[in-house]
């Protein structure tokens, strides 16, 4: 049941991306293209996706997180990191460059895969390689840091 509902969750997310026009990289890039404002071809749609997404999530989290535990889990697994360290600056900076180059980020890339285009397949394969590299490179620092934390 839990697996089926997570499939449904992905389906709702992907449908949201499609309805919002965010599975179309041209629309994403036209939002990021502030230089197009004078020409009148800037497309502010992505800001409305953010507003709709944040409004519903903020309201929903407010209700859900009052409960003792999730339906299928033992506890709510919320991020605990609060430090504004180098990683939270460097990671998103790198991510943003890639996002600006192709207009694709992880969610839309996966939904774009469902269109069956070769371009989205190439992007997703490279994205998985990048994710794997970051996981591997991120590990040693954690192992070295552990004894110091003790």
């Amino acid at each position: 049941m839990s697996i089926l509902l997570q499939f449904l969750t992905g389906l709702v997310f992907g449908t949201g991306l499609l309805v919002a026009g965010m599975a179309d990289p041209a629309k994403v890039l036209n939002f990021l293209d502030l230089g197009a404002i004078p020409a009148g071809t800037w497309d502010p749609s992505l800001a409305f996706v953010m507003i709709g997404g944040i409004a519903v999530t903020w309201l929903g989290y407010g209700i859900v997180l009052k409960r003792a535990r999730p339906v299928f889990g033992r506890r709510f697994d919320l991020p605990t990191a609060t430090a504004i360290d180098r990683r939270i600056l460097v990671g998103p900076a790198i991510f943003g460059i890639g996002w600006g180059l192709a207009g694709l980020c992880p969610g839309p890339a996966l939904t774009a895969l469902g269109f069956g285009s070769l371009a989205s397949l190439i992007f997703t394969a490279a994205m998985l390689a990048g994710m794997f590299a970051a996981k591997i490179l991120g590990e040693p620092t954690r192992r070295v840091a552990a004894p110091e934390a003790l």
Partner: peptide, 30 residues
């Protein structure tokens, strides 16, 4: 050029939000 779609994008964003709330309610995850 792409067409500015405030209503569709707001609704689509809302669906993305709904899925985020679903995953938190069901599994307790982001």
């Amino acid at each position: 050029a792409t067409e500015f779609t405030p209503i569709a994008s707001l609704i689509g964003g809302g669906l993305i939000g709904l899925s985020a709330v679903m995953l938190m309610a069901l599994e307790g995850r982001i």
